[in-house]
Each structure stands twice: as structure tokens, then as C-alpha cells.
């Protein structure tokens, strides 16, 4: 049986491929990444979430708390809360932003988009990879926006541009690791609405019980032990030491250790949760 083509132009009779290769995996991942990036820009609620909300946090914390807090900050902050705040907020937006990975994923599951992808001869890994890459891209844009506004209202790094840049990259790497955590949450919860709270319930206490907004010294001992050892604090500390100098750290802490610990958290979280997410994805879709 020969099958007449839908349109009889010979160029288009080429069969779609039935195998995935490294090259086709790269293309598929890029196609999905692009699609997810467009989602961020074109859906007003997502765009608002990733622009207005972080800026609001930045302005509120700077102008509402800034005056009261400045006195308690280490000297490395240069007497300006904004200098202390920006490295913390870069971590905070990374953590909050990672939640979008979960929400985007459940949205796609619910709408049947994932089913469509799975019925196509594309690389399966491209769905999760394209999702986390797009969220990394989105986060880079949000971080840039934060920095622009931050500089406009007085933020200045106190070290070198290279160290400052290293700090930004560290925040992005941490955000990428957290994307995988959020992917796991999304794949278990599955419902977009429920995912919203499943993501933000753990995230809020974790962000506040850290050095993101304030030094941890004044916390009660039990909380301080937790805060000082959780990854959000570690990464924030490393970021501050990179952008403001080691004076921003607690007594006894050095940049090298904080960087090493941060790197270990990032690699560890990425490894564990990406493998877990891949398993959860297989389970969620069959």
C-alpha cells in the first residue's frame, strides 16, 4: 500500500524520524525551552509574579525595615541595608522563582500538553530539561532586574566585579538546583492550585529562618542552629562574602568554606532531586 501524501509536494514526503539521537535531543530540549520561556513572557500572571513581586520585596524591605536594621549590620554592609539585602534577595527570588518549575509542570500535566509531548517521537528527557532550563533563563532575567533596581536605589558591591559576578552565578546555580526540588513537588502534587501552596508552605519559613533578610545572631538558639546550617543561609553567606567581603560573615566563617558548602549543597540537591524527578515523571504520566 502506498500512502498518498497529504500534499503531493515531494520535498515534504520525508518521514519524521523514529529515533532519538544526541543532536535531536538537543533540538527537542531547545524547542521546549523556548516554548517555556514564552510562557513566562506571555502569561500576564507569570510575568507579574516574576517582576512586580520581587521588586515589591526589594522596595518594602529597603524602605520599611532598612532604617531600623542598619545599626545591627556588620560593617561590611557599608552602613547601607540595601547592600546587605541584595545578596539575600537574589537568593530569595531564586527560591521563590523555582516554585514556577512546579507550577508550570503541573499546568502542563493538567492541560494534556505533557501527553502530547509523550506521543511525539521526541527525546523524553527534553520535557524536564527544557522546563528547568527555561526557569533558569527566567531567573537570570529576574535577577538582572533586581540588580538594576537595586543599583538604582543605592546597592554597590564592595569587592571586585569578578567576585560580584561569581555571586550572581552562584545564585543562579542554586536556583537551578531548587528547580529540581520543585519539579519533584509538582510531579507528586499534580494539581496546579494545590501546587501553589505545596511549594510556598515550606519555602516561606525556610527563607525567613535564614540569613536572607537579617543576620541570624538575634534568633533564639534552636532556630539559629537550624538557620545557620540550612542551604539558603549557606548560599546567602557565600553570596555576601563574594559581594561585600568576608566581613559580612559571622565570626569564624570564611569565604572558602561557605563556597565549598554551597557548592556541595547545589551539586547534592541537583543530583538527588533530578534523579528523583525523572522517576516521579515516569510515574506521574502512566
Amino acid at each position: 500500500m502506498t500512502r498518498p501524501a497529504i500534499t503531493p509536494s515531494p520535498r515534504q514526503q520525508r518521514r519524521p524520524r523514529g529515533r532519538t539521537t544526541v543532536a535531536s535531543t538537543v533540538v527537542d530540549t531547545w524547542v521546549i525551552t523556548q516554548r517555556n520561556l514564552l510562557r513566562n513572557v506571555r502569561l500576564p500572571q507569570v510575568l507579574l509574579f516574576s517582576t512586580v513581586q520581587p521588586i515589591m520585596f526589594l522596595l518594602l524591605f529597603t524602605f520599611v525595615f532598612g532604617g531600623a536594621i542598619t545599626g545591627t549590620l556588620p560593617e561590611a554592609a557599608g552602613g547601607e541595608y540595601i547592600n546587605w539585602l541584595i545578596p539575600g534577595l537574589l537568593v530569595q527570588v531564586s527560591v521563590f522563582g523555582a516554585g514556577q518549575t512546579a507550577i508550570g509542570l503541573t499546568d502542563d500535566l493538567k492541560k494534556g500538553v505533557i501527553d502530547r509531548f509523550r506521543s511525539l517521537p521526541m527525546a523524553r528527557s527534553a520535557v524536564l530539561a527544557g522546563r528547568t532550563f527555561a526557569d533558569l533563563g527566567r531567573n537570570a532575567a529576574v535577577v538582572t532586574l533586581m540588580l538594576l533596581v537595586g543599583v538604582a536605589i543605592g546597592f554597590r558591591y564592595q569587592t571586585s566585579f569578578l567576585r560580584f559576578l561569581a555571586g550572581v552565578l552562584l545564585a543562579l546555580a542554586f536556583a537551578y538546583a531548587l528547580s529540581w526540588v520543585m519539579a519533584v513537588i509538582g510531579l507528586y502534587v499534580k494539581e496546579p492550585e494545590a501546587t501553589q501552596s505545596a511549594v510556598f508552605l515550606p519555602v516561606f519559613p525556610l527563607v525567613f529562618a535564614s540569613s536572607v533578610f537579617l543576620p541570624t545572631q538575634t534568633m533564639p538558639d534552636w532556630l539559629r542552629v537550624f538557620a545557620d546550617n540550612q542551604p539558603i543561609t549557606t548560599v546567602t553567606n557565600a553570596l555576601r562574602a563574594l559581594m561585600l567581603g568576608e566581613g559580612a560573615l559571622l565570626e569564624g566563617q570564611v569565604l572558602g568554606t561557605q563556597l565549598l558548602l554551597s557548592g556541595a549543597w547545589i551539586v547534592g540537591i541537583t543530583l538527588v532531586f533530578s534523579l528523583w524527578a525523572i522517576r516521579a515523571y515516569r510515574r506521574a504520566v502512566s
Binding site: R35, R39, V113, S119, P121
Partner: peptide, 21 residues
């Protein structure tokens, strides 16, 4: 399955199209 996917088309019970595209 991958070889099969190259030869099939699926339109599910609910249209799986992206609203923002």
C-alpha cells in the same frame, strides 16, 4: 514506542494546545 510515535498523530479528549502561543 519511539518508532511508533513517528507514525502516529494524537488528538486527545481535550485540546492540548498552548494558550500563550
Amino acid at each position: 514506542p519511539t518508532a511508533a510515535r513517528a507514525r502516529i498523530g494524537l488528538a486527545g479528549q481535550f485540546a492540548a494546545v498552548d494558550e500563550f502561543l
